[in-house]
Design a protein around this nucleic acid. Structure first.
Lengths: 345, 345
DNA sequence: ATGAGCTTCCAAAGCGCTTTGGTAAATCAA
DNA sequence: TTGATTTACCAAAGCGCTTTGGAAGCTCAT
C-alpha cells in the first residue's frame, strides 16, 4: 500500500492524504479521520526512503566503530551506550545505523556517510588526543557530538564527558587515606583521552600525598579480563608489591580479582581495589546498598541518552552553539577496600 | 555534488554517467575513465536514499533487540554477533540498522520496518519456544534468518544454531567422568530456546550416569555476573553441595568463581567449573593453549558472519530453499576442572 | 551503395513521497 | 450585494537516482 493507492481508494488527492496524515491544519477534521482510519486499516506507513528523499532528512544517526583497536569498547561499553542512545532516537523517530569498520577505514566511513547523505548526524566514540575525526566532521558539515573530549583539538564542538581526572583522583585519594602507599594503576589504552585524564588524576593524588610515581605500578592496555589478570600478577610479583589497585573498568577488575585470589589472598582484606564503573548491565557492581567493588561510577547508558538528545538538538538547529557537559562520577564504598595489611616495611 | 551536476560538468547525460559508474558495458572506455576520474575528484557518491528509491532495495539489514528482558544479550553477546555480521554487510555494501525496543514493541518494530520498507532483511536474535516472530516475518514477506532455533515452530525457516544440547551434555559428561556426581547447572533464561536445549543436555548426561535430577542444583536466569554468584552461593550452602558447576556463559562463570573463592575454596582444585564460551572479545577464556576455564566453545562472532551471509543469499533470491546450519561446539580443557575433593560421602 | 548490426550515447519515465502554488466554494464584512 | 477572506482541496514539480526505449553514427559484408 502506497500513498497513491491509498489516496485513490479514498478519492482524495495525494496532497490531501499526505497532509491529513502529517497533521497539517488545512484539511477538514472529518476528512482527516477518514484518512487516518483507512491508513490504519491498510497498515499504511510512508516509505522511509521516499519520505527522506522528499524531505532531505534521512532520519537516521550513524555510529562508526573501529573494530580492531577498540575491541574493548566494541563490546561491553559500546552496547551499553547505544542502548541509551537508541531510546532517544526511537522517541524522535530516528533510526540508528551502525558501521563497524577496520581502524584504517574509519575516516573513509565518515566521508562515505556524509557523501551518500546516509545519516543526519553521528556520535563520535572513544576520542583520542588530537582526534582527527573532529576536524573532519566539521569540514564535512555533518552534525556530531562526542562522547568524551579530545585534548589538543582547539576547535569548538559538542561533547559530554565524565570528569575522569577527578574520579580517579578521588579513588586514589581514598586508598591513600586508608594508608595505602603502593597503589597500582590498571588503566585503559593511554592513547584514549579518557585514560590519559585518569592517569593524571592518579598521579595528582599520589603527589598530593608525596608518594613518588612508580612506572612499574602503572599499566595501560585494552580493558579485558586477562589484561587485568596479567597486570595485577606482574605487579604483585614485584619486590615491593602494591597493596591496592585502581582500575579503569569493571572488566579488568574481574581479572585483578582472579589474580589476587589465585595467590590465596582476599580482595578487600589483603588487597584493595577501587574500580571505575560504567554500569554495565551484565556486570553490575553488586547491589546499590552493598557494592562488590568500591568504585567511582557514571552510567554510560545515561551518557548515551544525553548525547543523543544533544545531537537531536544540533540536527534541528545546526547553528546552535556547541554544548559541553561534564559529569561528576559518584563514589560508592563497597567490599573491595580496607586498610593495608600486607605492607612490606 | 549530485548526478545532474556531475553529468553537466562532463557534458554527458545522467544516463551515461550512471552507467559508466555502474560498470555497464554500453559506454566507451575512454568516457568511463573520464567519468570515474571526475567522480573521484569531486568525491561524488550517489545519494543512498535516491538510489534505494530507484532500485527498490534499501541496502540495509535490520536488527531488532528487545531491551529489557534480553539485557543479557543486549550486552556482550549481541555486540559480538554484530561485529561479525557487519563485516559481511560491509563487504556486500549493506548498512546495519539496529533498533532497541521495549519487549512489548518488538512485533510492532518488525511490522514497521517492513511497512516502511526500511530494510531488505532482518536477523532474529534469541528465539524462544514457539517464537511468534517467525510466522510474523513470514507473513510480512521480509527475508530473515534466525540465530538459533525455535522449538514448536513447524514452518520452515533459515537458521544457524550451535548444538547446545550436545555441547552441554559433553560438558556434563566430562565432569561425571571425573567422578563428580553433584553438579550444579547455572543456566540462562529457560524461556530461551538455547537454554532449554542445554538443560536437556545436562539432564541426558546425568541420566546416562544414573544420577538423579535435583532441582536445587539447577537455576535459570539472566546471564549476569551476580546471577552466577548468587546461584553458586545458594547451591554451595546446601547440605549436600555440588562439587562442580556447568555454566551457560563466561559472564556468570565469573560470578561462580567469586562465590567459590569467597568461601576460601579454589576453582579447579576444590570445585570444578565447565562453562559455555561464546568467545567474547573482552572476556577471552585465557589463551588457546591454556584456557582459564574448561569450556565448550563456539564463536558467536563467527555465527554473525555466517548468518549474515545466509541472509544475503536469501535477499538475492527469496525463493531459495531454507538453509539450516548446526554447528558443533568444541571442547577445551582448562584449569577449572579436576577430580572431586570435597565430597560429602 | 545498401541494409544489418554494433557501438555509444541520450530523453524521459518512474521510484513514493512532500510541498508549492494554485483554485473553487463557502463565509464574512460592510 | 460585492469584494475580501477563509476553508478545503488538488495538479504538478521536485528530491536524485536507475532504467527503458530509442536514435544517431559507424562498420562491414554483400
Amino acid at each position: 500500500m502506497n500513498l497513491r493507492e491509498l489516496s485513490q481508494m479514498l478519492e482524495l488527492s495525494q496532497t490531501t492524504v499526505s497532509r491529513a496524515l502529517g497533521g497539517y491544519p488545512e484539511v477538514k477534521e472529518a476528512t482527516r479521520q477518514r484518512v487516518l482510519e483507512a491508513a490504519r486499516l491498510h497498515n499504511y506507513h510512508p516509505d522511509a526512503k521516499a519520505k527522506s528523499l522528499a524531505t532531505g532528512r534521512s532520519m537516521s544517526i550513524g555510529h562508526v566503530i573501529p573494530s580492531l583497536l577498540h575491541m574493548e569498547m566494541t563490546n561491553v561499553i559500546f552496547s551499553e551506550f547505544i542502548a541509551g542512545a537508541s531510546e532517544i532516537y526511537a522517541a524522535h523517530g530516528y533510526d540508528m545505523v551502525v558501521s563497524i569498520v577496520a581502524d584504517e577505514d574509519e575516516m573513509k566511513a565518515y566521508r562515505d556517510m556524509a557523501a551518500r547523505r546516509r545519516v543526519d548526524g553521528v556520535i563520535v566514540h572513544g576520542p583520542v588526543r588530537d582526534d582527527p575525526r573532529i576536524p573532519l566532521l566539521r569540514e564535512l558539515g555533518l552534525p556530531f557530538v562526542v562522547h568524551g573530549r579530545s585534548t589538543g583539538v582547539e576547535a569548538s564542538y559538542s561533547w559530554l564527558d565524565v570528569n575522569n581526572r577527578r574520579a580517579i583522583e578521588r579513588a586514589t585519594r581514598y586508598l591513600l587515606d586508608l594508608g595505602h602507599r603502593k597503589i597500582g594503576l590498571v588503566n585503559g589504552q593511554e592513547r584514549m583521552d579518557f585514560a590519559l585524564r585518569r592517569r593524571e588524576g592518579y598521579l595528582a593524588a599520589l603527589s598530593a600525598f608525596d608518594v613518588l610515581q612508580d612506572n612499574e605500578l602503572m599499566t595501560s592496555g585494552d580493558m579485558t579480563e586477562p589484561y587485568g589478570f596479567t597486570s595485577a600478577n606482574q605487579m604483585l610479583e614485584l619486590n615491593d608489591p602494591p597493596t591496592a589497585f585502581v582500575c579503569s573498568s569493571i572488566v579488568p577488575t574481574l581479572g585483578i580479582r582472579r589474580a589476587i585470589e589465585g595467590r590465596g589472598l582476599t580482595v578487600g582484606r589483603d588487597i584493595s581495589i577501587v574500580s571505575f564503573d560504567d554500569v554495565i548491565g551484565s556486570l553490575p557492581n553488586g547491589t546499590p546498598e552493598d557494592p562488590t567493588y568500591t568504585a567511582t561510577r557514571s552510567s554510560v547508558r545515561a551518557a548515551g541518552r544525553r548525547l543523543a538528545e544533544m545531537l537531536m538538538v544540533r540536527i534541528e538547529n545546526p547553528l546552535a552553539p556547541d554544548e559541553a557537559v561534564l559529569w561528576e562520577a559518584e563514589m560508592l564504598l563497597g567490599q573491595s577496600t580496607g586498610v593495608p595489611r600486607l605492607e612490606k616495611s
